[in-house]
Structure formats: C-alpha cells, structure tokens
Simulated assay, not measured.
Amino acid sequence: MASSLVDWETARRTARRLGRPGPATTRADAAAVVAELHECAAASVAHVEALTGLTPAAGAPTPVTAVVDRPGWVDANTAGMAALLDPISEALQEKTGSTPGALARAVGGRVTGVQAGAVLSFVSSKVLGQYEVFGTGGRLLLVAPNIVEAEQKLGVDPHDFRMWVCLHEVTHQLQFTAFPWLQTYLEKQVQEFVRASDLDPAVLRDRLREVVGSLSDAVRGKPVDGDAPGGLMALVADPAQQAVLDRVTAVMSLVEGHAEFVMDGVGPDVVPSVRTLRRRFGQRRKGVGPVDRLLRRLLGLEQKMQQYADGRHFVAGVVDRVGMEAFNTVWTSPGTLPRKEELTDPQRWVDRVLTPY
C-alpha cells in the first residue's frame, strides 16, 4: 500500500494507534447494534426507492452492507485513498520527469503517511457511514461506535437515529448503482485535475508544510489566520484546476444534498422524530469545541458542510418547482448535472436543462 507520495501502510498504522476507542458497551449490546443497523439498511432501500423513483441499473452489483468499527473504517479508507491518490502521484512523476525515488525524497512518503494517518484518526471518530466509491467500491459502511456515540450525545431515539443515518447512506448507494456513469465521471475529473496541474515536488512539499503547520497550530490552540491554507485543498489550489474543482464541488453537493433531502423527506411515518433529529444533528455538525471546529476547517470538513446545505437547497428548489420525476433528469449525463452557480439558484438549472424540452 505504499506509494511515492504517501506510505499508506504507515497511514493505516498511525490512524489505528492514534484512534480513540468508542463508547463502552457489552458484547451483547454491540451485537444488537450491528444487527439493527443491518436491518435498518435493508429496510431503507424500499423507502429511498419509493421517494426518489429510482432503482438500480440492470446488472448493477448486489449492494453489500458492512457494519464496522473505527479501525475497520480506517482500513477501508486507506485502501480507497490509495486507489484514488496513487495514480495522481504517478502522473505527477511523469509530468515533472522525476523518478519515484526523487519524489519520495522530496515529499517523504513515510512522513506524509504519518500526517495522513493523523487526519484519518480524527475523521474516523466523526464519520457515521459512507458508500465506497473508490477502492474496493460497492460497499455501504456503517460505523457502529460513532452512531452509538452520536445518538447518546444528542439524546435521541436510537432506532430513529439509526434508520435516519441508513436512509442517507442508502441514498448514496442508490445514486451510484442506478447511474454507474457517476463513478466514471468522478474518476475522469481526478485525471483532468492532474492534467491541469503544474505542481512540482518542491511546490507540493512547501504547500504540505503550510497545511500541516496550520494543523499543528490548531491542535495547540493557536488562532488560525484568515489567510491560512483552506484545508488540505490548499495542496492543489492552482488556478488552472479551478474549473475541475467547481465541477467536482457541484456533483458532490448534488449527491450529498440529495441524500439530505431524502433522509428528511421520508417523513415521520418512517422516522417519527425526524424533526428533532435534524435540529439536534445540525448543531453537532458545527463541531463541539474550538479545536474541533478549527480541525474541521483545516481538514476541509467545513467545505463539506456547505456542500450539504447548498445541495439540499438545490434539490428542494428543483423538486418544489417541477416535481421529483423531472428533477431526476439531473442524473441523465454530465451535461445535466448542476453547475456550481446553479446550486444556490435552482431556477437557472431548470431554465438551462428542462425548459428546452
């Protein structure tokens, strides 16, 4: 799992070593949580399909749900990140004419592995679930200790919360199984991103140091300057890549906002306390303390929170105007995906995509 840019085995071991244990539980209680999460995930499929009107494409792989602990999530994501980022490393080597040894010495695969491990350790205690798009692909991951910890801290009904989380993640599963071209599209954007890059090892090293330095300041409680690097995306913030970033932001905002819309849209018949869940969970996403909020900012998680908000605004705005069936035109092709500026102005998308027809 090692590459010239990041030693992923070091990242995996570091994240496991730094990771915090989940909430204390008995073996019997843990088994009951795992069983209920599997049941909620299976039950969510019919609810999501009924609300969205979507079904998996013919020949789509049978969905697999895996209930994991924090180390299990780390293992899955080091594999996924390696599958996504190692080709970037190779492309940079080819583009700059550097040999693998030279790039490894410039950046330090083991050092960046430790840094990546620290990031994964932090995120592994926050994430509730995900649908694996890259790497092994096709699995729905539910992180049991994080779900239990969140429902305890929020003081919400455990069954409702578990169903609510599963509705969100199953929506992602349906998006990528109903429209397999989405994964190909995202992979092509990564390739396009690399082709647009003019990074060389020296620039990459300097930017990495800036971000890690800011992250260290946050951990020590120092204030973050307004001009500090904007999360890990500061590593790849070349102007030539902005168009690619805008396209990726738009599609990720769509898939996240669509999932947000669905998990609330099934209504109280499925999740009786859905309004309470939304209100309390919105506070959780802001971070629990100043260091936590700074870490979220530096890791780019604040940008992800904005994707949830913008995407949900877009989906709700289009559905309110034209209904769910017409909204589903958004999944037809790359040309029907929303543009970044349309996320906050759904009528512009309606005018561009639907009005001609």
Rank of each mutant, 00 (worst) to 15 (best):
R70V: 06
A82D: 13
D69W: 05
V133S: 03
A106C: 07
F122Y: 15
P145E: 07
L140G: 03
N146Y: 05
V68T: 15
S89C: 12
G72D: 08
I147C: 12
V123R: 06
R105P: 01
L92Q: 11
G72Q: 08
E132W: 03
Q115H: 10
G113R: 00
G138T: 12
G109Q: 00
K95C: 01
S124G: 11
G101M: 04
F134L: 12
F122P: 00
L128R: 12
L103E: 06
Q93N: 10
Q130V: 12
V74D: 12
L84G: 09
R105L: 13
L84F: 08
L85P: 01
N77A: 04
G108N: 00
E132H: 06
L120Q: 01
L120A: 06
V123N: 10
A144G: 11
L103I: 09
T78W: 00
Q115D: 13
A116G: 09
A102E: 15
S125D: 10
R139D: 06
E94W: 08
G80T: 10
A83P: 04
K95T: 13
I88G: 05
L141Y: 10
G97R: 09
R110D: 11
A144P: 05
S125R: 06
V68L: 15
V74P: 13
A76V: 14
A106Y: 03
N146R: 06
N146V: 04
D86I: 05
V114R: 10
G135M: 10
A76Q: 13
V119W: 03
G108P: 00
V68A: 14
V133K: 03
V111A: 10
V111N: 02
D75Y: 05
E149W: 04
S125L: 00
G135E: 08
T78F: 01
S89Y: 04
W73N: 09
E151I: 03
T78I: 02
G101C: 01
K126Y: 12
P71W: 06
L120Y: 02
G113V: 00
G117H: 07
G129A: 10
V143N: 12
